[in-house]
Design a protein around this nucleic acid. Structure first.
Lengths: 196, 196
DNA sequence: GTCTATACCACGATAGAC
DNA sequence: GTCTATCGTGGTATAGAC
């Protein structure tokens, strides 16, 4: 506790990001005002500009951090030496778990890309492509090992990611199925879809 | 040609819907102003209110018409007497084709539901559920006939719809694959996923 | 049926006091 | 670091002329 002034910068910054994420996810980026975010944080609107250059930067930082986290988390968890089937299973379970844990920002990263500048959009799309390539490499490897039977690895990549991310649109905590049961069922469908 | 006045109501109404759809899809509902829509149509902002009660009604009408069209088109095309495998194939091809033909409003119907009032939201969700049930009934029938092997028909319904609708996010006319080839490949993956 | 004009309000962002 | 106050702009929607 080196500081003893009234400064709150270490807490206000993260609070702004958290409230912006919550509000953007709930109402949409364009529908949320800087005043609303400030009110949720407990400061005046002008104070937000000590932490962000403008509203778009607030959105971009959320999406950029999320994509970085996603890729880093997958690479930390990916079983490098394993065979394609084991790697695919790990990917499916990872994707469902990671996305359900961060439903708000995942939602944002699909819905609010339009509100980024051209260059910021390109950066996020690049990271998304990086992530998708991780899956495609697994599918190609399995195809080469002849343990998968996939008509087109690019389309299979897009199909699997869309299918898995779709869980976020309907899953509700405390519903009929637990996260683990959902992951089991999706893994079964994916495994069959790739012909394994 | 009974009319010969300066009235353009028969053309202005549809034009407003078309431009609103295009602009909402491109920039997002909240980011598009009534002035922008009016400018695209070629009238003044005030004139829009002769055709719609407010901005939200404009969005709701687009989504409602789309869902009605979707359900009607599927029911007109569904092979009622056929076996589950043939019905599923028809559904897969229908969904991809229909959604690619109306990419703008499909995009809206996934992205802009938040901007509807609670009751209008419920109406659209009801229609979506109706459509999803059409697929689930096919899956249940195939399960009963033992031609499908599906761990959970509800989840399979959501998974298949998410996977198929995902085509809209990456498909570009004139790319590597034609619509027909895409439909063939997706049908192959769906068929395998349901264990047929 | 469409126009011009405008009421009224909220927006993002900045300046300057404390 | 946060506040109050404010600038300039643009939002939805309506009134009344033609």
């Amino acid at each position: 506790m080196a500081r003893k002034t009234g400064s709150h910068s270490e807490i206000t910054g993260p609070k702004i990001r958290a409230e912006a994420q919550r509000l953007f996810a709930r109402h949409g980026f364009a529908a949320v005002s800087m005043r609303q975010i400030a009110a949720a944080v407990g400061v005046q609107a002008g104070a937000l500009y000590l932490y962000t250059s403008d509203k778009e930067a607030l959105l971009f930082d959320l999406l950029k951090s999320h994509m970085d986290d996603l890729i880093a988390a997958w690479r930390a968890e990916a079983p490098e030496g394993a065979d394609a089937l084991a790697r695919l299973e790990r990917f499916v379970r990872f994707h469902i778990r990671f996305n359900l844990e961060r439903a708000e920002v995942v939602f944002l990263s699909y819905m609010e890309l339009r509100n980024l500048s051209e260059e910021n959009f390109a950066k996020i799309e690049g990271l998304r492509k990086t992530y998708e390539t991780e899956l495609e490499e697994i599918l190609k490897a399995g195809q080469a090992e002849a343990v998968f039977l996939i008509p087109d690895t690019k389309l299979a990549t897009m199909a699997i990611i869309a299918m898995l991310t779709g869980v976020n649109t309907w899953f509700r905590e405390g519903g009929r199925l637990s996260r683990a049961m959902v992951a089991d069922i999706y893994w079964d469908m994916v495994r069959k879809a790739v012909g394994a």
